[in-house]
Amino acid sequence: MDKLINDFSVGLFFWQSLVFILLIVLLRKFAWKPILDAVNEREESIEGALKAAEQAREEMKSLQANNEAVLKEAREERERILKEARDMKNKMIAEAKDAAAAEADKTIASAKAAIEAEKTAAIAALKNHAAALSIDVAEKILGQELSAENKQTAMIGKIIEDMKFN
């Protein structure tokens, strides 16, 4: 300890403190601040670049996912449209079939009705014809027996009435 105190030089202490404080102040202004700022700036720019790259990658990924979704949607849309078309086709065919069937039925029905009418008319005509024939026959047969006209007519009417009720 005695040696330490003996070795202590006030002048050296004075100059060291003075020069060192000056050195700190000067280096702070001219060296440390610019150096540390530059290093900081560089680190920030590197970090920024990395972040931007990461972001771009994320965006790319989301874009890809988006594309995928759009594609999928389009595919679904196509499916849907196709299905609709198919359904429509089937429906149209069915409708057409129904309509045709209905038309056919109607035609058949009207044909049947016409046939029926013709048949009735034919039967009626046949009946009239037969009646006329019968009258002719009967006239000829009854020409002698029924000389009076009025008796004849009443007789014929009675017969016809009977035939109709048949």
Binding site: F20, L23, L27, F30, W32, P34, I35, A38
Partner: peptide
């Protein structure tokens, strides 16, 4: 002190 000043100022200048 002079050496360090010029050395580190030189380094700072390159930035």
């Amino acid at each position: 002190a002079i050496f360090m000043f010029f050395l580190f100022r030189g380094v700072a200048k390159t930035y």
